[in-house]
Design a protein around this nucleic acid. Structure first.
Length: 458
RNA sequence: GCCCCCAUCGUUCAGUGGCCUAGGACACUGCCCUUUCACGGCAGGAACACGGGUUCGAAUCCCGUUGGGGGUACCA
């Protein structure tokens, strides 16, 4: 039997790193065993689902290179969910209920029941007829346990008695996700359900429904540990910076992102954690996934990203950096010449424009502390004077410029690069100096040195 | 409250009874390379939450404690 996996996001927000990782693990396992990877949009909640977010999810998944083989949308399948719900109703496995949320809560409080939902089975045998405000509830077994062997968590079991008669069809007539989820996994022949641990509590309900609707067997479950923030809490869209699209916009490379995500909850035995996905696919196994939650460490992501940036050829870097080059791309030939110089210094693509700024426009205002540190040393004025003097009629090539600057250094027996760099680039750090310096007009360089010289006098 | 789960360096992954005086990576510190900063190289500090068992032997198995997390909707 061929392995079939699905990633089932609800289009209620942008794809976030937790979802992306769930998608990745599904996708990777499909790759590993040559199975089918399905994208199923779980949009049964019309109020929260937003159609344009489906496109956003598509975009993010494609960006990460997580292509899917089949796609479904649950809103196209409401009729089927209603059909199975009605069958359960007819078979007495579900019943109509006209209790309001308030009345359920009141009765629970009256009983002193503080155990969550607290529906008491009030309408189980009241034979409620269809109508306004009427929902369909699943009649959960009062005894027994629902259990399964989870690939990552091991044997898990829940007491059926702890499950209330949950709603499977809203009063609007639209089925709830449990039904859709249980039916689809069965109907679509899903063999492995790989998703976040936050969904683990829904498994008993889904399993009970599957059985009630006549679905035989159960899929193999694998519940991924959560990705958490520095407070060790589940990443939240509101609180944390987690949309995949935002990472793209900040200059992260999709392969770096995807590679990093894979190391959260899983690691190759040999410790080589940066490598092509095809290699990971050879050894990846759902059973090896960690149980403990993992912190999303942006510092390590940055490192991965830097590594991936350094792996790029100049052509590739030029291409991929286009959204980030800004003014530096006015002259593409020049941009191409300069890019290799900044490449080893990059953690993110959005740093490019800033690093090239002084070559294609005005240098940034120097950081006061840095300026002082470099420019208040004795002899700096003399260095600047002599360099400026020789720059007036030297050849305007990187080699000649280096000779001038270092030549002055040799004569005066001092290091000359830093003051010159500070004067013309406004910073004490950055890419090698002379190649980009030769890209700037002689007069402009002279003017910057003169400016720095006069600032020295103040 | 109730249900479920988790626990190795600051972070992350490896380790599935002896190969562990616990390994890699990120971060951090130092040195080397370099007339800047990075990159690269080398070195260093840094962990099996605690308490009981089981065993000749426990990071690895069992129990408890503590700490943390997830769920508890006419969301998914």
């Amino acid at each position: 039997m061929t392995v079939r996996l699905r990633f089932s996001p609800a289009p209620t927000g942008y794809l976030h790193v937790g979802g992306a990782r769930a998608a990745l693990f599904n996708w990777l396992y499909a790759q590993a065993v040559d199975g089918t990877f399905i994208l199923r949009i779980e949009d049964t909640d019309a109020d929260r689902s937003q159609p344009h977010l489906v496109d956003a999810i598509h975009d993010s998944m494609r960006w990460l290179g997580l292509e899917w083989d089949e796609e479904y949308r649950q809103s196209d399948r409401f009729d089927e969910y209603r059909r199975v719900a009605n069958e359960m109703l007819d078979a007495g496995k579900a019943f109509r209920c006209d209790c309001t949320q308030d009345s359920v809560k009141e009765r629970a409080e009256a009983r002193g029941d503080t155990s969550g939902g607290g529906y008491d089975g009030h309408c189980r045998d009241r034979d409620v007829q269809p109508g306004e405000g009427v929902v369909v509830r699943f009649r959960t077994p009062d005894t027994g346990v629902t259990e399964w062997d989870d690939l990552v968590r091991g044997h898990v079991s829940f007491e059926n008695a702890d499950l209330e008669d949950f709603i499977i069809v809203r009063s609007s007539g639209v089925p709830m996700f449990h039904v859709a989820n249980a039916y689809d996994d069965w109907d679509m022949g899903i063999t492995h359900v790989v998703r976040g641990e936050d969904l683990i509590n829904t498994v008993p309900r889904v399993l009970l429904l599957r059985e009630a609707m006549g679905g035989e067997g159960q899929p193999i479950f694998a519940h991924l540990p959560l990705i958490v923030n520095e407070q060790r809490k589940k990443l939240s869209k509101r609180r944390d910076d987690v949309a995949v699209g935002d990472y793209r916009d900040r200059g992260y490379l999709p392969l770096a992102m995807r590679n990093y995500l894979l190391t959260l909850g899983w690691g190759p035995k040999d410790g080589e954690e940066i490598r092509p996905m095809e290699e990971f696919a050879k050894t990846f196994d759902l059973a090896d996934i960690n149980k403990a939650p993992a912190f999303f460490d942006i510092k390590k992501l940055d490192h991965f990203n830097g590594e991936y940036i350094r792996m790029l050829s100049t052509d590739e870097l030029v291409e991929v950096s286009k959204p980030f080059g800004g003014a530096a791309m006015a002259d593409m030939d020049q941009y191409r010449r300069l890019l290799p110089l900044v490449q080893p210094r990059l953690k993110r693509l959005d740093e490019i424009a800033g690093q090239l700024q002084w070559v294609v426009g005005d240098p940034p205002e120097p950081v006061e502390k840095d300026w002082k540190k470099v420019m208040t040393k004795p002899g700096v004025g003399e260095v600047l004077d002599l360099v400026a003097e020789r720059l007036k009629d030297c050849e305007w090539t990187p080699e000649a410029l280096e000779e001038v600057v270092f030549g002055v250094g040799a004569e005066l027996d001092t290091k000359t690069q830093l003051p010159v760099r500070m004067a013309i680039s406004g910073s004490r750090v950055g890419m090698p100096l002379f190649e980009p310096m030769a890209e700037v007009e002689r007069d402009e360089i002279l003017r910057r040195i003169a400016d720095a010289r006069s600032k020295l006098e103040q």
